[in-house]
Design a protein around this nucleic acid. Structure first.
Lengths: 231, 231
DNA sequence: GCAGTTATGGACGATCGAGTCAAGAATGGT
DNA sequence: ACCATTCTTGACTCGATCGTCCATAACTGC
């Protein structure tokens, strides 16, 4: 259906698109992000992208299909960020990678002054119940994230940073839940500092190996070592 | 503005309402719950409640005000459930109460076959960003829940079920986040068994007192991997 | 039974928003 | 210059939906 991509055009050359599809999808995402699916009008998207509605419908089908594109891309990106932070690297730094990832997620939510939250959470909340496509994609995404976390936890266990007696699958599910919970709590109004604390606490309570460790359980409300400067 | 509530009617007696306000609010809640705010039509609510639109508008103002009523009642109920499960009782059973509460929340989500999720989460996700009333009420609710959890954690610490060196505020925030996260993850498609496991795991990793078990792992003071913002 | 008040319910108006369409534009090959 | 094809635009359709209006109902005290 797109001959000009496969080979040079055989006969007549149609008018080429005047917009960058990727860029349009990003701008559309911004709209859906701010106003949700039901709350976003196609005219909003037309205005945001500068395209006429005819072009939008011609290129993406309808509002639902457009959203599915945006949502799918977003899910891919979410997993991508996690892979970037988590996958690969020596076992000795697995714990650091886990920590960096969880803190990053908290930081994103904490500094999300517009309270947009994650599109994944917002779309799931709004649509997963009625839209099998969204439900399926979001479930896939959750599974992928949990797998990444489990792999990393296993690595940390090999290196002795986490009690090897613990079930990595369950710890991964817990961390994933905490990350999603930070999102949800942030949107529900939990203050940024608390969000950051939650991330730290969640990492602190991960079971240490037998017989270790220096350092008490929870960080007291001590001062210092808190890179949190809140606006 | 509502004389007949205060004392017998002074002069003329208006036609009384033919519906039970509470019941109507519950039915309206059901609608909002299933289809969200933007996705619910006033005609849906009229049909669901059996009332004419004139009555609805006369009694509640408009769609937004009606939703605020429903949402406010729901928040009150959420805190009520938590109080019922958590507040009061001997310290020796504080841990059991905490456990019961967290497991109850997980169970609710796990058995929510219609994937409705909690109205609090759904409304926060959809509206908190734009509706200050919803944002404020949901923030209040979070604070109330966190307070209840903190109180209970403190009680468990007194009885020696949780390491007294841990900061109860932070543990409370963590548990609250886990509970909200279970909601979010459930809606995003995490399977019921995993949700239940998360609740159990979250309780298991709460730091035990010195004598009993191991302690937590501290976050590596590694390079504070620069939280590169992701959009 | 009449008066004064509020409730009821459904028709109505006005607007809004998703999706369509037709006329014109851009393109390389001939 | 002409062709065949696809892209672009925005005005248009048409159904949906919020909120209003009004004739009528229900009620109590007189």
């Amino acid at each position: 259906m797109d001959d000009r991509v496969k080979n040079g055009y055989p006969e007549p050359m149609p008018r080429p698109r005047a917009f960058d599809e990727r860029q349009v999808l990003e701008q559309a995402r911004e709209q859906f992000w701010v106003t949700g699916f039901a709350g976003t009008r196609m005219d909003d998207i037309a205005r945001a992208t500068g395209l006429g509605k005819g072009s939008l419908y011609g290129a993406f089908g309808d509002k639902g299909k457009l959203f599915h594109r945006v949502f799918g891309d977003w899910c891919t990106a979410v997993v991508g960020v996690a892979e970037e932070r988590l996958a690969g690297g020596p076992d000795s730094e697995a714990m650091a990678r886990l920590s960096a990832y969880v803190h990053l997620m908290a930081e994103n939510t904490a500094t999300d002054t517009e309270r947009r939250g994650c599109l994944l959470a917002k779309a799931s909340a709004e649509l997963a119940q009625h839209d099998p496509t969204v439900a399926g994609r979001s479930a896939e995404t959750m599974t992928a994230l949990q797998d990444l976390l489990r792999t990393e936890i296993t690595a940390a266990q090999r290196h002795g940073d986490i009690d090897s007696a613990a079930d990595p699958e369950r710890l991964a599910a817990l961390l994933l839940t905490v990350v999603r919970g930070i999102e949800a709590a942030g949107k529900a109004g939990m203050p940024p500092k608390t969000l950051r604390d939650v991330a730290a606490t969640a990492l602190e309570v991960l079971p240490a190996p037998e017989g270790t460790k220096r350092d008490g359980v929870t960080v007291r409300p001590t001062t210092g070592h808190d890179p949190a400067r809140e606006s």
